[in-house]
Design a protein around this nucleic acid. Structure first.
Lengths: 232, 232
DNA sequence: CAGTATCCATTTCGATACTG
DNA sequence: CAGTATCGAAATGGATACTG
């Protein structure tokens, strides 16, 4: 049996939403991913078979529309799907308060950099090309160096190889430290003060960087403890 | 692997909440059930083994406290668990709007009557003993007749056998009709008007009954269509 | 009352490779 | 790019009976 056998609206909702990965796929659609391989980058540990299956299920029950778009296809939330936005946000706000233990296996550098690169505040970055470098001191060679290439006011690319352009600032930290900063568990200031993060670049750029990166949507949401600059 | 391998707060939350039955157990705790067998009545199709396992899991991650209470034990939500209340309500409000298809297997008379009996508005029921009878015209003999015995201002019992007291009102309908009324999908008025519900009793009591039964917490929440008195 | 024990059918999912 | 095919390991959980 797959359902709960209850007429309760909460039960009927969870029949749909408690399937593994489903909420994360909806999160990605809410975040603005519309194509299969974009969605995959937001759920990198989900197999393409399963993503495909979940998308078909969501279409069947009316939360997602699949739109043929030339040779590609495009996925859009329906009104029913879009009405999940406040619930998904509430789940994140709750998680940031109560599910604070991050195992090593949760620290995925690909996901972190994917998130960072799509949340550059283009309005505050200078015109022309700006290249940021991130170095994680504690992970394997092929995931330890990243470059974020910001072109003018509109385009941001992510590279895991040196694109060869001049770098204006290099941030060096453990992967965990940068994850904590991204999540809003640790402030830029505290990380710089205790030495867990170092920035190389002109003082102007070092001061500007925290404005260029917008951090997680939940970074500013209220925590249980007033203002712990939690390290772990 | 049981987690998602993501530091995203939504993912960390769903690692906990997307396990089958978990949200329904939390719903029951929020609804005021605190003992094992009370919880079971709210999730009648869950095996006791699994309920026990889920409760242990919820205790382990800090959403529930188990309190030895003499020979019994008592389950209470922690502050973290209680903060799920608005999310659980939002899931129900969403479900009532978008997950409106009820299969025959969702129409559980035990759950319906359990819900009805614990939502009697004691403030509006007269003093002394008041007995209500429900008859479902389309279900097997052992689940078709129910008596709700209200004693004074404080106690409500549910019987699936005739307790022998004088009945002040008998409601007769299909099981589906009463479920729809309970959910707020169909109004008392519309059900009476179209004959899908009949009430036997004095006109005073027939008029009072809709005030005695409080209906689902989601009965009054906004629907997608302005005011359809949906029948199916 | 408040669970536990056992057992097995079913489902689920991850890994990997492949296709139009 | 956008998926599908296949397969086997693992987990899930439903049914039933039993216990202090």
């Amino acid at each position: 049996m797959t359902g709960y056998g209850q007429f309760c609206p909460i039960a009927k909702t969870m029949e749909v939403l408690d399937e593994r990965w489903t909420i994360l796929v909806i999160r990605e659609l809410l975040a603005g991913s519309h194509h299969f391989n974009d969605l995959r980058r937001g759920v990198p540990k989900m197999s393409p078979t399963l993503l495909s299956k979940r998308l078909r299920g969501l279409v069947r029950i009316g939360l997602v529309m699949r739109i043929g778009d030339g040779t590609r296809s495009r996925y859009e939330l329906t009104p029913a799907g879009r009405e999940l936005a406040p619930i998904v946000m509430a789940l994140g706000n709750w998680g940031v308060r109560w599910m604070t233990q991050l195992g090593e296996e949760d620290l995925d550098p690909h996901l972190l950099m994917w998130d960072v690169h799509r949340n550059i505040d283009l309005a505050t970055v200078p015109d022309g090309r700006t290249v940021l470098e991130f170095h994680f001191s504690d992970v394997g060679a092929h995931t330890s160096n990243w470059w974020v290439v910001i072109n003018g006011q509109h385009e941001v690319d992510l590279c895991d190889f040196d694109p060869g352009y001049e770098v204006v600032v290099t941030a060096t930290s453990t992967l965990r430290t940068m994850v904590l900063i991204w999540r809003g568990d640790l402030s830029w200031r505290a990380a710089l003060n205790n030495g867990s993060l170092t920035l190389e670049g002109s003082s102007h750029v070092r001061n500007a960087l925290p404005h260029w990166l917008k951090l997680s949507p939940f970074a500013a949401s209220p925590r249980v403890l007033p203002q712990a600059d939690a390290a772990r």
